[in-house]
Design a binder for these strands. Structure first.
Lengths: 340, 340
DNA sequence: TTATTATGTGCAAAGGATTGCATAAATTAT
DNA sequence: ATAATTTATGCAATCCTTTGCACATAATAA
């Protein structure tokens, strides 16, 4: 068992307070003598002392820990976001605890419960769901929260996300400029912020171009690859199939690719493809995949900055940040010629 | 601020002990009256009571938390391992804290320190380094540990990993059978368990086939994609370049692909490629990438099972588990004809 | 009726660290 | 020589929960 301040105090013959002060660099402030200092430090080392974060957190009413909840750790977008968040948080002296809600609101709820019980100093959440009563509760408990990627406009909580509408506009306009008019959209989970805003961008791009919206071309229901695979297969079977597909997320695009391969549909010759999210491997595919890149690092930086501000300054007004997406044009879109 | 047992006790007129008993389902055992029970539960709900995990952990001397440390969260292999670990741990009633050591032993050390301070009940570590004195310390502190993926044979600690030697043998033999004799190996971080064992497999496959080992074809020094990119470029410039490359990890393979694309080297026609690790996107590349698959789910299951056993049973003998790798033959290897 | 058991609840001691306040001794100022 | 500081340290409360032990009352057994 690990030793405690008390052990050190007893063995060196000083008080617990003194030991605490020496070990946490308050020696200056409390004017501990050099002699005591070295004596205590040596003993701490000999006994392998290690502060008990539980006791400290309990006493200090803060843990220097931030909770992070994402819908799917293994989704490259989120794992990169986590990585960046980790770096930023470390700079600020925070540790973090990650939860994977597995796109399941029940797990998300229990993750939040668990994190609040652990008394984290703040939360960064990419929520799965449409409902946000549980997020509201965090606010009510006055725990700083920042929502990322998937936000609720109606909710009075800080948020950072990419401008999804604009991202979709970029992608779909790119397809339109290449001559496509039958453009399908394979959605993610309907009702989520990310999905609805991306859908909105898709629709307004078509509308702006005077292309009527065909509801048969709006398909799918979650962000996983299986969804992309199945919906692509179905789209290809339509009597009047699309010439281009825009997918709402990177995993969906992978599924779409698989379906195309199975059906010997060459990309971009027989079908063009653009996706939201730009995973590392997008440029390594061949043809490389045109994709809407989210500024992952910036999202993480902003999120941490906002969280930090709110921890220090709980009553500031709500801030909502939209970051600029970027279309990376690669090789998965073919120019087609309209038949007039 | 969140309310405490004391608040509830005061407002309902019972003692703190009773409140605690009611709220944690010891009512049966302690024979709390139905009346008190409902009264307390109602008040807890009204006040939005939430147990303080710090105080509980401090008192109970356990946290029901497990620490996980990996070298790179954004590496698909690790993010999938984490995802599986998460599921397994949840089943057992454990939460977990993930750290990303960023392939940096200093960060790994501080992560361990931090986790021990938090009094986690156990640790799952994929260590970055060659040195293991810091892991030894965990053992000395009698905290259950399981090493995954990157283990130390000399260290008396439970471990689970894939049989790397065998995995490399499968991959390299596959290349040899296709007629390749100039097979390069782009390594990961030298000195790490994963790398050394994979290298060993590579060498013995060549040796078994009577192919002499050309040290110029053993290159590289870390698991990131940039390494794959640079080393591939250099390999292609050799006066006598390899006809096949075997990479030690998925990101390295991505880098290699990028280099090939830049140099207009078609895979598999001009160069064959096989990689260790089989990320989700391997089969979506075109040509799809032949790869050595690690049983990710099984690794996670075993790791959690072993950790659990050790938590319950600290003095059991060390166990070391090697899991079977599997070669997924896809489209990145071409058969070549020897010129006799 | 007395002894025993069951029922329902409270007291108080951990668990380990932090920190405001107090104090004794040693310096320095007046 | 006395007062005012400074130096160096200790006391004890506090953070919140859990839990062994004690105790009072009620019910049951002998």
């Amino acid at each position: 068992m690990s030793s405690t301040l008390k052990d050190i105090a007893e063995k060196t013959g000083v008080s617990i307070s003194t030991v605490s002060r020496v070990l946490h660099d308050n020696s200056q402030k409390y004017k501990i003598s050099e002699e005591t200092k070295t004596k205590v430090k040596q003993m701490a080392k000999d006994l392998g002392y290690r502060v008990n974060a539980l006791a400290r957190g309990l006493r200090q009413q803060k843990t220097c820990e931030v909770g992070i909840i994402v819908p799917d750790i293994s989704n490259p977008f989120f794992s990169e976001v986590i990585k960046s968040l980790a770096g930023e948080l470390r700079k600020k002296g925070y540790n973090f605890i990650v939860y994977d809600s597995d796109e399941d609101i029940t797990i998300e709820r229990s993750a939040i419960k668990s994190l609040l019980e652990k008394r984290v100093d703040g939360l960064v959440i990419a929520s799965v769901g449409q409902d946000f009563s549980h997020i509201q509760k965090i606010r009510d408990a006055e725990i700083p929260v920042v929502m990322i990627d998937r936000c609720f406009d109606e909710l009075d909580v800080d948020s950072v996300s990419v401008d999804n509408v604009k991202g979709s506009l970029l992608a779909v306009n790119h397809l339109i400029e290449a001559g496509h008019t039958r453009i399908a959209f394979i959605q993610g989970l309907p009702g989520t912020y990310a999905n609805e805003t991306r859908l909105q961008g898709y629709k307004s791009a078509l509308r702006d171009a005077g292309i009527s919206i065909d509801e048969h071309l709006i398909v799918g229901d979650d962000f996983r690859s299986l969804n992309g695979y199945l919906e692509t297969k179905l789209l290809l079977k339509l009597s009047n199939p699309p010439t281009a597909i825009f997918t709402a997320g990177d995993l969906i695009a992978l599924g779409a690719l698989e379906a195309c391969r199975e059906h010997n549909i060459a990309i971009p010759d027989n079908l063009s493809l653009v996706t939201f999210d730009d995973p590392v491997f997008a440029s390594y595919l061949s043809p490389s995949l045109s994709a809407v890149e989210q500024p992952v690092t910036k999202i993480a930086e902003m999120a941490v900055a906002m969280l930090y501000r709110r921890i220090k300054n709980p009553n500031d007004g709500r801030r909502k940040v939209l970051l600029e997406p970027k279309l990376n044009v690669r090789g998965s879109v073919a120019r087609i010629f309209k038949i007039d």
